[in-house]
Design a protein around this nucleic acid. Structure first.
Ligand SMILES: [Mn+2]
Ligand SMILES: [Mn+2]
Ligand SMILES: [Zn+2]
Ligand SMILES: [Zn+2]
Lengths: 146, 146
DNA sequence: TCTCTAATTGATACTAAGTATCAATTAGAG
DNA sequence: CTCTAATTGATACTTAGTATCAATTAGAGA
């Protein structure tokens, strides 16, 4: 999906939840959306400071936490490094092939769960050994208690 | 699956890769296997020291890294806490329902990807908004280069 | 069972990711 | 334009995780 569209959608999510569209948040969003790679918080911090030296480190971490809470991004954890951030498509999908040897991460677009395991693995010449699937949503308790 | 079996399987994986079955590793493994919850590294460190005060902090972290490399466990990242560790079944499966409001995590046994999205969500009264699927294996390059 | 050594360990000091605090600034409602 | 609650940047701090290194040990081989 177009990064400009994702960026606008994210701004809308912030507005919808009553958060202010501050310079720091826009800068961090912009960096997240304009990098296809999975950036670490340190990467993001460095890039943000580089593009606007006035932005403080705490605000960058605060933005990442906020975007994560809002489901715009998600930290993932590969190796023992610090977390990398993944931008969700607006359909909330994100699928990876992760190599256990070299930690290469291949993004899978348009995942259709049914055919996934065999189909994508074959397509990318991966030999699979396992998977972790996380479904995000709202539980019954939380739906009721508000 | 039986925790005793998982424990023995893990020991076998260590042996198969030529790692020594040291007291520190066995203690950490034991704690991982005997707790169904998702423990953080701090939890695991505290429990290990509690059950054997001779074990050093570095060895606990080293064991977690090693087990992760070997695919026995996997760190997951919810909220901005430090990572929690997940023990993989021997089939390499692990699936969660994660509530975006309260961060509750529900384990899904026996996931069959096809029916998952709708079936499990309905069963657990979750309203889904997205998912992250990670397939682990070995990429073509790594298969060839060794 | 004993020997030998590479692998591993625990203790310790260190690094750096992430957080708490707080006075100063600002988005944006009215 | 005014006003104020939300947010910020600077800074100090906490703490998860790591690097180092001399001491110990698992377990292969004799
Ligand atoms: Mn990705
Ligand atoms: Mn689980
Ligand atoms: Zn690879
Ligand atoms: Zn909930």
């Amino acid at each position: 999906m177009n990064e400009q569209v994702l960026y606008q959608q994210a701004l809308q999510i912030l507005r919808d939840h009553g958060y202010k569209l501050t310079e720091a948040r826009k800068q961090v969003l912009d960096i997240l959306m304009s990098h296809a790679e999975h950036l670490t918080s340190s990467d993001i911090l460095a890039l943000t400071v580089k593009s606007d030296a006035n932005i403080g480190r705490a605000s960058v971490f605060r933005a990442l936490d906020l975007f994560t809470d809002l489901g715009i991004i998600r930290p993932i954890y590969h190796e023992s490094q610090s977390p990398h951030y993944v931008v969700f498509e607006s359909n909330g999908h994100h699928a990876h092939l992760v190599c256990r040897e070299c930690d290469k991460v291949v993004d899978l677009d348009e995942c259709h769960l049914g055919e996934l395991l065999d189909g994508f693995a074959a397509e990318h010449k991966f030999s699979l050994s396992g998977h972790l699937l996380e479904l995000f949503g709202v539980c019954e308790d939380c739906s009721l208690h508000k």
